[in-house]
Design a protein around this nucleic acid. Structure first.
Lengths: 239, 239
DNA sequence: CGCCTCATTGACCTAGTTCAATTTGGGTGG
DNA sequence: CCACCCAAATTGAACTAGGTCAATGAGGCG
């Protein structure tokens, strides 16, 4: 149940067996969501955090003019709102993009865990700081990367993140996102996303078809994307 | 020394006197930086976090093509790299924008503080999650807000943040940033920033002159900017 | 079969970039 | 006090990445 979470974190913070057992013992009540359903609502007090066990979800904000900005994609093994523990109320919501299953960790249990084992505080904190690191890299994408480079960067990010939790096959992976959602994440219109995807397809770098990303030339794609995976903190600390 | 930090956080997490004293007793060694100097370097192991006591600084990343993306501005009372405690190594750097003074908090002291007082773990964690919240709002700006709206939003953010630490005079405040740096934060060229500033000036909403932002019509500026200060977590928790 | 969502494509338009000057306002050395 | 310098601010003109509008396909499903 928490194996993918551990896989995501362990290169920087290995879980001891008793730490994993402690955490597992507090993770309760699996809940299922349908595509489009709200996993975490905005503006309400939150008393537990949700670990995504299966499916894809995202953080997003809706603006007054009806536009939507997606700020992060979540995959199995991610806490989708661990940051709600210190923040208590969120100014954005978490939405299921596909069928999703989550398990809950009550905030009072987080408090108890932290008190009995302060090292886990640093590990939880670390997990939320990787989200912030991803936010910063997206800021670089939205602020400085254009066209195909921006799309390619996201394709690389999802590849690296999905690979550590065993959800890639070679250099392809399932990415069940519509072009409209892609556009809402990248700050493009869905029409422009469509054109950029065509460009990536025509240049033989990557394709998105049937909800599946297939990277034909990873090295070239990373180069185009100006992609350095350091910000994902998935590798051991460089010495 | 930590008064401005407390002012920034206290609406959500009030410091008890002994907590403030504990923290104060561990904050040591004031260091000064000149404009352009590196406060925290990228890619190196970090063993202490820096609280900005005086001056302006920012987080930024340089790209291979020589472009720079600024991801957040820091003002007195902000920890500029508290997130280096869980992350240990950063993929970006913190740079002084003006004369700056910081005081240090050793990571081993953070560990000690957290162990002796787990409530402070949540408070530190909270402080870093507000940075992440600011990142998300900037993602909305870069992804969905255009032209004057994007600039206006930043002006509103800085106004609210500076006000709680007493660095505003009425609706104006010192913002010692060049138009080029503004452009690097907003994902525009400095030329376009210049034109947008002219537009804000001509429409009588706000001016930036002599390193000072003067908001002529706060209500109208907030409206234009689609600004909701909730993401700054500077107000008491709504019940 | 008909409907609905999502993908695709063309034509045109505009916000923002690029390139190129020009101006402004300290600072500095003599 | 003046001549010079340099970073930052301004402005114009031409260009383009990406948006807008509109129409057409294409698959899934009741």
């Amino acid at each position: 149940m928490i194996e993918k979470l551990i896989a995501t974190i362990q290169k920087r913070y290995a879980f001891l067996k008793e730490e994993a057992d402690l955490l597992r013992s507090r993770m309760t009540e699996a809940v299922e969501f349908k595509p489009g359903e709200l996993i975490v609502p905005e503006g309400q007090e939150i008393t537990y955090s949700s670990l995504l066990v299966e499916g894809f979800s995202c953080r997003s904000k809706w603006s007054a003019d009806g536009s939507r900005q997606i700020m992060e994609f979540y995959i199995p093994g991610n806490f989708v709102d661990l940051h709600s523990y210190p923040l208590e109320i969120l100014d954005h919501s978490i939405t299921a993009l596909t069928d999703c299953r989550i398990v809950k960790l009550q905030h009072k249990d987080i408090t108890a865990i932290i008190e009995s084992n302060p090292r886990l505080a640093r590990i939880f904190w670390f997990a939320t700081m990787v989200d912030a690191s991803i936010h910063r890299e997206w800021l670089v994408s939205l602020g400085s990367r254009r066209g195909a480079t921006r799309v390619a960067h996201l394709f690389c990010e999802m590849f690296y993140r999905l690979r550590v939790v065993g959800l890639t096959q070679g250099t392809s992976y399932r990415f069940p996102i519509t072009q409209t959602e892609l556009a809402q994440a990248l700050g493009f219109t869905h029409i422009h996303v469509n054109r950029v995807l065509k460009e990536l397809r025509d240049t033989g770098l990557a394709t998105l078809k049937d909800k599946t990303v297939e990277i034909s030339d990873l090295k070239a794609l990373k180069e185009l994307a100006d992609f350095d995976p350091a910000y994902l903190y998935l590798e051991p600390r460089p010495k």
